[in-house]
């Protein structure tokens, strides 16, 4: 379980984190979304006891990151967004080194490491020098490293960044397995659809503030009650466009001639949506379908962060 209370981090006049509050229950996979510099890595660094907050505090499994940093380190498995490896160590030795760093006895490590290598599909690379592994393999090895002491909480900063599609899928499969193992996972990623698929909840951070938090559907609801409605037409588009544009609750209307559809945002209630459809039919519009569009995470993110392009 992770609890963040009024967490603030300032670097001189720049505020990287601004009174961040967040609670992540045990066993939750929480996706942290934000542009570069939004405060994701700062939050992760504080939770990993690598950075002291300016104000506020955070708890990992009930341990205070400031007062009980040693205990926090035993609870977490941390994978930074950028990390290096030792060029003269083999994959097997790399894991032994970190296992020993957590005080795991050699006999136990001998049993554990093959299992971890198997989990991340690197058994065949156990005797390969770490620096000779591909980027995706290094990422997977680093994930295995973060699991060596069987932490309850995983803090994964962009674990799939820089990976090719195949490696990304492999990483996603491993994370699914970890989710099934009941780990609490805090993960950040730019690959938003993947986050939506993997995460139970997501939080959108912008300029150090948590601007939205919840399930994908919940966040959608937080978007000022707006819905995106797609209308497939059977008749003339001009009449339909004119009709919907006159409606006060309709905004940002777009017509797509290829699919002969109209898409617009609707700010009304469910009842008002029913009334809109009824009026359209009464008006004589030939409508093949009238449905709420599925808004994906990227759309939500772009909307919440005012359309700033993802980096």
């Amino acid at each position: 379980m992770i609890e963040i209370i009024d967490l603030t981090k300032r670097y001189g006049k720049f505020t990287a984190l601004d009174s961040l509050n967040l609670k992540i229950e045990k066993g939750t996979v929480f996706g942290f979304v934000g542009q570069n510099g939004a405060g994701k890595s700062t939050t992760f660094s504080i939770l990993s006891t690598l950075l002291a907050p300016t104000a506020g505090t955070a708890f990992v499994n009930g341990y205070n990151v400031q007062k009980e940093a040693k205990m926090v380190r035993r609870q977490i498995g941390y994978m930074p967004d950028f990390f290096g490896v030792y060029d003269q160590l083999k994959a097997n030795e790399y894991l032994h080194f970190y296992g020993a760093s957590y005080g795991i006895p050699l006999s136990e490590r001998e049993k554990l490491i093959p299992q971890l290598l198997d989990l991340v599909n690197l058994t065949h690379k156990r005797d390969a020098y770490v620096d000779l592994l591909s980027r995706g393999m290094k990422q997977r090895l680093c994930l295995a490293r973060s699991l060596i002491h069987d932490p309850e909480v995983l803090i994964l900063d962009e674990p799939a960044s820089g990976l090719d599609p195949r490696a990304r899928i492999e990483m996603r499969e491993i994370l699914k397995e970890l989710k099934e193992m009941g780990k609490t996972i805090l993960i950040s990623s730019h690959i938003l659809p993947e986050l939506a698929e993997m995460c139970d909840r997501i939080g959108i951070i912008d300029q150090g503030k948590l601007v939205a938090e919840g399930g994908v559907a919940e966040i959608q609801a937080q978007l000022k009650g707006e819905k995106v409605i797609t209308v497939m037409l059977a008749g003339h588009a001009e009449n339909a466009i004119a009709f919907f544009e006159d409606e006060p609750l309709v905004a940002r209307l777009q017509y797509q001639p290829e699919s002969h559809t109209i898409e617009f945002t609707f700010k009304g209630t469910d009842q008002e949506q029913v009334e809109l459809l009824r009026s359209a039919i009464k008006y004589g519009l030939a409508i093949r379908s009238f449905a709420e569009a599925q808004v994906d995470l990227e759309d939500i993110f772009m909307e919440i962060t005012k359309g700033v392009e993802l980096s």
Binding site: L50, K70, R73, F82, F83, G84
Partner: peptide, 13 residues
Amino acid sequence: ERQTLNIMLTTAQ
């Protein structure tokens, strides 16, 4: 510089 220190610092050492 090699970006291995942060990982080492999050261990129990």
